[in-house]
Design a protein around this nucleic acid. Structure first.
Lengths: 355, 355
DNA sequence: GTGAAAGCGCTAACAC
DNA sequence: GTGTTAGCGCTTTCAC
């Protein structure tokens, strides 16, 4: 099976490349090419299994049909699940995904952004680390659609999808307060990222509002779980007054449970628990752990939708939709959207006061 | 900051594109271009921040520096973790990753393989579903390096990385037998994939060798966990004689534990447990669950290494290594490798016989 | 040692 | 309605 190019087709059919190109790009009608010719070309193309070379196309048009996806760490269940949904919908819309993990590393992220630029991705979806504001701004200025999710960057206006970090942590903390817990710790990772800041602020607001004391542990995130477990143990050992703990992220939660084991602390007898982000561990743990869950599918859906919307706008003559296409009213140029997805909470045994 | 092309550079420096290209591709020496000129060009290139356009390069050379990565489901923690490692090493070597999930869907996989072909990826890493043998073979015949991992396809010879499924399940089953368990169930997903077949065969061999009865439950895999939990409950309810259960995969294990809860079965009192694939759930569950673990980093490392080795071979004149390059002896043409990575087992409370 | 020019496969302005 | 042709930015053969 020989590989056909557009010239081969033109030659075989004794017409010109242009005509073939027009037909292949659904511009036959617009160019008023005879239906018979269209039919003949399409027939032939199908027959020989011709596929246009996307690289040549990209070189010419500047479009690649590739989306850059940048998460903190693709091995993190949350990001992996989001990536999965995004991947699905992207492929359905004819886009491929190039992905990468930032590790929240500024330098690495800058390099990756540069790579996206060079590779000419059509748009990108990013859970940005702090410190790449200038580069993102440059990207946006160059006309590349950039969508933020999970967090945003102060001072940058672009489409973004987030959850209600502040409110959900406020409410979850209130739940503990209403149950009658008085000394509620908040165990989190030291981070200036907006989502983590929001969670902490929510906890603080609730605690202050109830005139309770604030106990916050900020741990430097590390892949080595001992470096998470040990600070938690130290914190719990120091603050023996604590009767409840709120974990701000999944790795805090699971490693916190490990710390409990090692200290032989019972839940919720010694310590009540609420965790941010749900997972099998929390559902199966005995007692089961109350957890805030992020609607991952909605987050992913909203994110990729925002990007696809931007990408659609860039191809004015997109002949996909038959006729309604033209009537897509208001241009909404540069009119960025911020989507907030509400979280849910699964109340289980760990947050109930023994009475 | 204007975007420079190679002609811009040539023009600015009053030399020809050719010369610039040679210098940029480290062929200055070979072409005996004067060191001063080389220096001048490199200086200028750095100054204006010129980056060659990879798309144009691809169109011309047929290489893309992109690796296709195809897993069953990127949201699965195992595949996500493998992807993470592969991504890392690929980027270090100048390759980008386009990834996709097959869902073990033959049709989808065929389309994705076609996409890899069209997109001209330089090579691909695949955890293949059954039924795409012909397409993979065609890909290999076309000269594309294809590396299998996690499983292989009968009748296809290519580089592959797997774990010792058979032996590890044989040994794990023997562990239960030695503890004195007599009626050991094996709960797995119905699959003709080699890795699942290997696990089942290992269990069967151990059980038969000990003249014990075989109890196998094969569940159709589904994202909806109720469709996994319910068959397990039915199986356990039917076979009340069982004193131990071996779960062949992580989703079998976690959903199995959920089934236990719902049936109010105690581990290991009512049922001892061993699971294939380890995770936090098993470590934190009370009692903790004995689990076979796959050395994910080794698997990923071996896989990407095999691919990189193939890719290196394809660029004979690669001027990366200074001089030792030429001495890479034996050609090993078409000499495919099969790497088997041994698993480990973490023995915890769930597999111990109460005495 | 360096340059002119062809061409990778495609799109699109322009001509007829 | 259809064809001619000029690039997109790069590599590489061949000529000098």
């Amino acid at each position: 099976m020989k590989k056909y190019s557009i010239s081969d087709i033109a030659q075989a059919l004794n017409i010109s490349k242009t005509t073939v190109s027009f037909i292949l790009n659904n511009r036959a009608e617009e160019k008023r090419i005879s239906p018979q010719l269209v039919e003949r070309v399409q027939q032939f193309v199908k027959e020989v299994g011709y596929k246009p070379n996307p690289i040549a196309k990209s070189l010419r048009t500047g479009k690649t049909n590739i989306i850059g996806l940048m998460v903190e760490n693709i091995a993190d269940p949350f990001f992996a699940a989001v990536a999965r949904h995004i991947e699905n919908k992207a492929y359905q819309n004819g886009y491929k995904i190039i992905y990468c993990s930032t590790d929240n590393n500024t330098l690495k992220t800058k390099e990756l952004l540069e790579m996206f630029q060079e590779r000419n991705v059509d748009g990108c979806i990013i859970a940005p680390p702090i410190g790449v504001e200038a580069e993102i701004k440059a990207l946006l200025d160059s006309g590349m659609p950039v969508i933020f999710f999970d967090r945003h960057l102060e001072g940058i206006v672009t489409d973004q999808v987030e959850i209600n970090n502040y409110e959900s942590c406020l409410e979850a903390t209130n739940l503990l307060i209403q149950e009658g817990f008085k000394d509620i710790g908040f165990i989190t990772f030291s981070s200036t990222q907006t989502q983590m800041q929001g969670r902490l602020a929510g906890y603080q607001a609730a605690v202050h509002h109830a005139h309770l004391k604030e106990y916050v542990l900020e741990i430097k995130f590390d892949q080595n779980e001992r470096l998470i477990i040990e600070p938690i143990k130290a914190f719990l050992t120091k603050h023996t007054k604590l009767d409840a703990v709120f974990f701000s992220a999944i790795q805090a939660g699971t490693n916190g449970l490990k710390a409990f084991h090692e200290l032989n602390l019972k839940v919720p007898g010694d310590l009540a628990v609420i965790a941010f982000d749900d997972c099998d561990v929390f559902a199966l743990y005995a007692p089961s752990i109350t957890a805030i869950y992020q609607p991952i599918d909605q987050i992913a859906e909203a994110t990729i939708d925002l990007l696809l919307k931007r990408l659609k706008k860039k191809t004015p003559g997109a002949p996909a939709a038959k006729s309604a296409a033209k009537s897509s009213s208001k241009p909404v140029l540069g009119n960025f959207q911020q989507v907030i997805i509400p979280t849910g909470i699964t109340i289980r045994a760990s947050s109930r006061k023994k009475r």
